[in-house]
Write a protein that binds this DNA or RNA. Structure first.
Lengths: 141, 141
DNA sequence: TTTCATGCAAACGATTTGCAGGGGT
DNA sequence: ACCCCTGCAAATCGTTTGCATGAAA
């Protein structure tokens, strides 16, 4: 499936869910699908203005909330920073945040996930979702 | 060592670090050392008012920041909630948050910690600190 | 043509801060 | 005495919301 097909499929699904695809929303969807980093609302606003000049910050926030509710994007609240977003089409993963640069690296560990589930079960719980963030620094040499 | 001795030792250490022990701070330290839950600033303010009537919320916030800087307490930013605090005299642990009740359960896994360190190392990082939160629900039956 | 979405400005809630007076040490 | 700490009120910052207008469907 090409990128254009995937994009069309997504907008159709959103329309079916009652989410109107306006110029502003199309711009944000494009910006999000292209992004390979984890931008915050302000940065997304900046990027969306290129395709949709005059788009307001409230629209950005409202759209991000709507897309999150539809499961199209994920919202992350890293320490001491405003919320950062990413497209949800990748597999589940967790994050390492470079404390010097703010750069985010994705990683995944089946083994950790399994241990988490076991620990929860032992205490009589099931996991609804989890958050695991490693605040890291580049090792010398 | 008795509780009273531990408390005296702590206030002496704080004084040595240049942190004056005022009536308000003593009240907060007492409230924090007695708490077996993870209260937020508003709740701590409420509790501190018993020992120190009229204590202001700003003083609570300022003191919490100071105590955190001294390593006396830990600050947790769980999802969709204001910061919650706990005394730092226990061993390292992570948290499960019951999404229905907001109740917090502490847990610890050497194995997970080890895996985290390995994963970071593989990517050329060392862990400064981490955050692992399991948002859970009581299992039926 | 009926909603739902937008832009603007104002509201929000948690937390921080400037200032003048008070209290540890 | 010195200067840090307090209470108050106002400021901050990211985010949300009320409202009148505009545009998907």
């Amino acid at each position: 499936m090409t990128q254009a097909e995937r994009s069309l499929q997504l907008t159709n699904a959103l329309r079916d869910a009652g989410v109107r695809i306006t110029r502003q929303r199309a711009a944000l969807l494009e910006v999000l699908s292209v992004a390979d980093d984890h931008p915050d609302a302000i940065e997304l606003h900046r990027r969306a203005e290129i395709a949709s000049p005059g788009i307001s910050l409230s629209t950005v926030y409202r759209t991000l909330t709507a897309l999150e509710e539809q499961g199209v994007i994920h919202r992350h609240q890293f320490e001491g920073a405003s919320a950062r977003f990413e497209h949800a089409n990748a597999d589940h993963h967790d994050h390492m945040i470079d404390v010097e640069t703010g750069e985010v690296v994705e990683f995944c560990s089946e083994r950790i996930e399994k241990l988490q589930a076991e620990l929860a079960k032992e205490l009589g719980y099931e996991i609804v979702h989890h958050r695991m963030e490693l605040y890291v620094r580049k090792t010398q040499n």
